[in-house]
């Protein structure tokens, strides 16, 4: 029972929101749709939910044509960024909504609905709050109610639209782990939209990256992080340092620094990328490109180094032990990236 999206397109007026997107979410998989705002990820999610109709393409779930079904017939649980809880209903009635609107023939008895609501309240750890109204809850609690409400209909697929986008960082991290546990307990196929690369990499089984309405890469978080398909993705996944360089005859030149390149490296002008925390600081006689140290600041457990190299500012984030004594503001150092990735210059 997997979700298959086959070359789906959608335009709003003359603005193309999705162009020929194809992807698959396996049974029980946790798939993240990651992209900057305007990349079409929410549009794709709303198409899966039946809240938008695509201009072209096909969407099937377990072989069944989802596009032939209306939103109410799909049995797909949706969690909205701003919760969309029914504000005039208590927590318990919010969660019971999906069961209580079923046609009489398939509607569970009152007692059965009550029991199911109790189970879900336990699952989302809100047993004491069933008589509260949404306006009396914190953001994190509201989002948990929204999830319980979506799970109440025993959805065949769960869709989450930036569910933690409106929450603060700490609550966000806690809820993220908790959501993953709920997913593992219920085993429901989940598609999750986010613009936060850390969230996607931390949470998902696989990550699909969208840009300008196109799918640019899909894969497991570690694979995507280690081998981004292009410069945009490398940059978007966070903590990237970009340098301009030149490749000729198997040698990369960055400033006065020369280093051998693999055979498949692009030739000519290149963008060389490495992660902020993946570099060794050497003395001026050592290996690496030259950089002037402009400033230094403790940032949590790490040290942030503000540097200038090749006339451009760059920023490294290193553990305290990795910053040698001679790397002081006003000094000059050489930076040797541990792993460089080269993309032909745009």
């Amino acid at each position: 029972m997997s979700l298959i999206v086959n070359s789906v397109s959608k335009a709003f007026g003359r603005y193309p929101a999705l162009a020929d997107v194809s992807l698959e979410a396996r049974q029980g998989e946790f798939l993240a749709l990651l992209g900057p705002s305007g990349s079409g990820k929410t549009t794709l999610l709303r198409i899966l939910a039946g809240l938008e109709a695509p201009d072209g393409g096909a969407v099937t779930f377990g072989g069944e044509d989802l596009l032939a079904l209306s939103a109410r017939e799909r049995r797909v649980g949706m969690v909205f960024q701003h919760y969309a809880l029914f504000r005039h209903m208590t927590v318990a009635r919010n969660i019971a909504f999906g069961l209580s609107v079923r046609p009489r023939a398939t509607r569970p008895s009152k007692a059965e609905i009550g029991r199911r609501v109790g189970d879900l309240l336990r699952l989302v750890q809100l047993e004491d709050l069933e008589t509260r109204y949404p306006s009396q809850l914190s953001g994190g609690q509201r989002q948990r109610v929204a999830l319980a409400r979506a799970l109440a209909i025993e959805p065949r697929m769960l869709l989450l639209d930036e569910p933690f986008g409106a929450l603060d960082a700490k609550v966000r991290r806690d809820l993220r782990r908790w959501l993953r546990r709920v997913h593992d307990e219920t085993g429901v196929t989940t598609v999750f939209v986010t613009h936060d690369q850390e969230e996607a990499l931390d949470l998902a089984d696989r990550v699909a990256i969208l840009k300008d309405g196109r799918l640019v890469q899909i894969g497991e978080p570690q694979a995507v992080y280690n081998a981004p398909a292009d410069a945009f993705i490398y940059d978007f996944l966070g903590g990237a340092v970009r340098l301009r360089g030149h490749v000729a005859a198997g040698v990369l030149a960055i400033g006065d620094w020369r280093t051998p390149t693999p055979d498949d490296a692009p030739q000519g002008g290149v963008d060389a990328f490495f992660r902020q925390d993946q570099a060794v600081i050497n003395g001026v006689e050592g290996e690496g490109f030259l950089a002037a140290v402009k400033g230094m600041a403790q940032r949590g457990p790490a040290i942030r180094l503000d540097l200038e190299a090749l006339g451009e500012p760059l920023e490294l984030l290193l553990a305290a032990g990795e910053v040698p004594d001679f790397a002081r503001p006003g000094g000059t150092v050489r930076i040797a990236p541990r792993q460089l990735r080269l993309f032909a210059a745009a």
């Binding site: 809240l51 209306s70 109410r72 029914f86 609107v101 929204a146």
Partner: peptide, 27 residues
């Protein structure tokens, strides 16, 4: 208020009239 609550009601299986009388109108 926006249309999110109505959209949520639909994904939860509510029809047009049910959504109107149980979500839109009370709001």
């Amino acid at each position: 208020q926006g249309a999110d609550e109505e959209a949520a009601a639909m994904t939860l299986g509510a029809g047009g009239w049910t959504t109107f009388f149980r979500v839109t109108l009370p709001n």
